[in-house]
Each structure stands twice: as C-alpha cells, then as structure tokens.
Nucleic acid binder design. Structure first.
Length: 426
RNA sequence: GGUGGGUUAGCGAAGUGGCCAAACGCGAUUGACUGUAAAUCAAUUGGUCUCCGACCUUCGAUGGUUCGAAUCCAUCACCCACCA
C-alpha cells in the first residue's frame, strides 16, 4: 500500500492540488515534504499530532520529512480559522515557544537514519535577513491582491465585523515564501497540513510555479473534529498538551480513554500506527462490546506510549486503576506515589490535623475542589466528597492525623474523578 | 445632531415600590442509573455563620425620594433602533 493509499483509508485525505501527478511522483521515489507548526504556545497539543504523525507516516514509507518551526510566521499570526485579529506575541515569547516545541517536534521523527533522515528548520533563519524592500520585489510582485482577497481565511474576516490587519493579510506571503525557499534549497516538493491551510499552501505552489517554474503539491487532511462537529483536543480545563508538565501522562491517557464511541475509530485511524486489520478488529469490538471500550483503551495506550513513553504509560495505568478502582485497601506506598504524581497536590500544615483536626469542608476549599465553603458544604451534603476514596456524609466530620495515608497524605475527591492529594509532610 | 428603547446572576431572559438573593430556560456542579458513555431522573447553582434559621453584599455607575427601591427621580457611562 502506498503512502497515499494509506492516508486515504485512514480518512486523512481531504484534498490535493493534483493527485494523479503526485501519485506518479511518489511512485518514482522518495519525495521531500514539509509541514509547519505555529509557535502560539510553549507546547504542542493533541491537535498538532495529526500533521506530525502524517510526517512520520511519510518517513516510514521512505520519504524525507521536514518539520518547520514558525519562528517568522509566529511573529505575524495566521488568520486561517480565526474570527478576530490576534494579539502579537513578543519576540521573546516566540523564541521561548520555538525552543520548547523544537524538543517535542524532534521526538516524533527519525533524524539519525542514513536513508531518509528528517530535518528541522526555523523559517526565521531565511525570513529575518530579507529586507522589506527585497521581500516586496522578490515575493510580493508574484501575488495578485485579487487572489489573496479571495482566500477563505481573508474573505471570512472581511465579511465579519472585525476586519483584518495588513499584517495578518500578508501572512500567506510568508508561508508561500517558506515553501518556495524549501523547494529551491532542499527540493521540497510537497507541503501538508490541515484543510484550513489550503489557501496558504496553494499560495506557495503558485509562487513556486511563477518564480521557479517548478511544480509543487499541496496535500491536506481534515480537521480533527468530534462527532458533534466541535474541535477535538479541548477539555473544560483547556487544551490537551503534549508537555507532561502541562498535561500529565495520566490526564493525557484519560483524555483518550474517554473518547466517544462515535469518534474512536476515526481517532485510531488518524492518530495511531495500528494496521488496518487491528483497527477493523477494534471497530468490531466497539459494536459488539461497547461497554468494554477496548478501542478507547488501545487508543489511549498507543498515544501515551508514543508521546510519553512506556514508563509513563505504566504509571498512568496504575494511577487509573486506583483512581477508578474504588477502595484503597491494601495499596502500597509505592503505588500510591504514582497517584500523587498524577493528581494535583497541595501542601497542608500537619499541625492542622493534630488533636480534633480540621473540618473536611475547610480542606475541600483548601484543596481547590470547591470555590467556597458554602459550595463545599453542598457537595458534601449531596454525597460528592470522598476522603481516601470513602464517601463522607457527616457535615461535622474532621480530618485528623489518623486519616493520613502513609503518615503524610490525604486523598480528597469530589464527584467521580476529581482528586487532590493533600501533602502533610514536614 | 434629533427621537425612542435598553443595560438583571456564567449566558439568555422575566420582574415596574414591600411576599426579591430575584421566575423560567441553557450551561455548570453533585447524586441515581450506566460502559470512567449517551439518554433519562433528582438536587444545588452570590457569600458567611452557631445552615430546617439568621446575617452580609448584589439588578450599568453615582447621588436622591421613601418607613422600605432591581422597580420612582436626577446625573453620568455604554449599547440598540429609527430620523437627519
């Protein structure tokens, strides 16, 4: 199966500038391709996985992937998919974000192989030295404003209330310049991205044709959305990050375990390297034994291993067992330590537990599980507060030294799965 | 610039002198059921406390009338509509 056929069955093929010639080109031998990543945060999130893994899929098929960090484009801001003008990031922010993302980007591709090593560039390297006058003459001259205005990303903004600044309007030129540069210096013939990048990518293809008289292809895949049409990768508490400091491996694992039945097969195709047969088997499972959620668990296992490694997966599985398993009877301190690492932790003055102890309600507020004592009381009355995984019902209940696990921890829980560990050491 | 209408809790929206911490809907939180699901049902949804009750702070802002104001009056700010 060729890379294009594989993308097709995975549902990753949305559009291509010329699939017939691209098919021929790919059959003829390894192709160099790239995808850019926007440094709008200091970590990648699950939404970035689709393009990143697509690069990896190409590499596995023998092609040469280039990861492009948007050190230049990140200074401007891509208007695609945005309904309003963005605030500019400071150069320090962009530099910081690039540095953090670079490490993550590097983890998904093989830079060491002799055959088709991946490469990583920062577009600031070739964009920053170009003067404004040079840019207008060498790049701007090839663009028709009429065409630029017709791009979706620009048109929706012009039709909306907020308009678009000259800065963001110019964004497509910068991205086109990148593609053109990579085409001439590194023989990069293909750019991939999500469908919202179509306009920016084809701008590059046009520039390459006009300026270099060469061919280049655009290949885009669908945006990762849920069955209800909303954007995938967000939870109530924000994006799901790849950085373990921002989203713990446990939460990362749980995010995928909780995938909807209607989404899980598509997610397996988009985000894992499982084979067609393996995914078909899991799809069968979803239909015959939905309650077992084998597909969700496979998805979560695959991705946690891929992003965080086997050890982190082990910890996340153990923590899940405890946090969803119920009673804490007989657990060892070693296993509990996994939980401590995966759940928010707050310090607690050990003196507060001495003698009569501290009311549970105060601890719930201290742990950040309730915004006020009144709310904490209501949660407790409704049976939604657990100490060490035992439901509490007594309003006047206090926590004392006797409740400490291993002499230093209190495991406080609200509802089914919101936990905080109170650490009373020292 | 003129005339009229509006600004109420996370959002939408009732309330036009006391029974208003403010109907109702959505959202959110908790519980039951369940598959760590969906749907459904129930409770809660300004704060404090000695919590079946009491108190404190809220209805754009400030000041006033009144025993009593989200509600009446004045000024200011912002939004909308129509007219120029």
């Amino acid at each position: 199966m060729s890379i294009l056929e594989e993308l097709e069955w995975r549902g990753l093929y949305a559009d291509c500038t010329d699939s017939a010639t691209l098919t021929q080109r790919i059959a003829a031998g390894p192709i160099t391709l790239y995808c850019g990543f926007d440094p709008s945060a200091d970590s990648l999130h699950v939404g970035n996985l689709v393009p990143l893994l697509a690069l990896r899929r190409f590499q596995l098929h023998g092609h040469i992937p280039i990861v492009l960090a948007g050190g230049a484009t990140g200074m401007i801001g891509d208007p695609s998919g945005k309904s309003a003008e963005r605030n500019l990031q400071t150069p320090e922010q962009v530099a910081h974000n690039i540095a953090s993302q670079k490490k993550q980007l590097a983890g998904f591709l093989d830079f060491e192989t002799n055959l088709n090593p991946a490469r990583l560039f920062n577009n600031a390297d070739w964009t920053a030295p170009v003067s404004y006058l040079e840019f207008l003459r060498d790049v701007g001259k090839y663009f028709s404003v009429n065409v630029m205005l017709a791009k979706d990303s620009v048109r929706t903004r012009l039709e909306g209330d907020s308009g678009i600044s000259y800065t963001e309007f110019s964004y497509q030129l910068l991205q086109a310049f990148d593609f053109c540069h990579l085409r001439s210096k590194f023989d990069c013939e293909l750019q991939i991205g999500a469908t919202d990048q179509w306009g920016n990518i084809t701008a590059g293809c046009d520039l390459i044709r006009k300026k270099l008289g060469a061919t280049a292809w655009a290949l885009v895949f669908p945006l990762l959305t849920k069955a209800d049409g909303t954007k995938y990768g967000k939870t109530a508490s924000g994006a799901v990050w790849l950085d373990p400091k921002k989203t713990s491996p446990y939460r990362f694992y749980q995010f995928f375990v909780q995938a909807d039945d209607a989404d899980v097969v598509r997610l397996l195709k988009f985000l894992t390297f499982l084979t067609r047969e393996e995914i078909a088997a899991l799809e069968q499972e979803v239909q015959t034994h939905p309650g077992a959620r084998a597909a969700q668990k496979s998805l979560a296992r695959e991705l946690t291993t891929l992003v965080h490694g086997a050890d982190a997966l082990h910890g996340a599985l153990k923590a899940s067992e405890i946090l969803f398993g119920g009673a804490l009877d007989g657990i060892t301190e070693e296993i509990f330590q996994d939980v401590v690492g995966e759940v928010p932790t707050r310090d607690l003055d050990p003196g507060k537990l001495a003698g009569a102890g501290t009311p549970i309600i105060d601890l719930v507020v201290h742990a950040g599980l309730a915004p006020s004592k009144g709310q904490a009381r209501k949660d407790l009355e409704a049976g939604g507060i657990y100490l060490n995984n035992v439901r509490l019902s007594d309003l006047s209940r206090t926590a004392t030294t006797n409740d400490l696990l291993f002499g230093k921890y209190l495991l406080l829980r609200k509802g089914k799965r919101t936990y905080t560990v109170l650490s009373a050491r020292g």
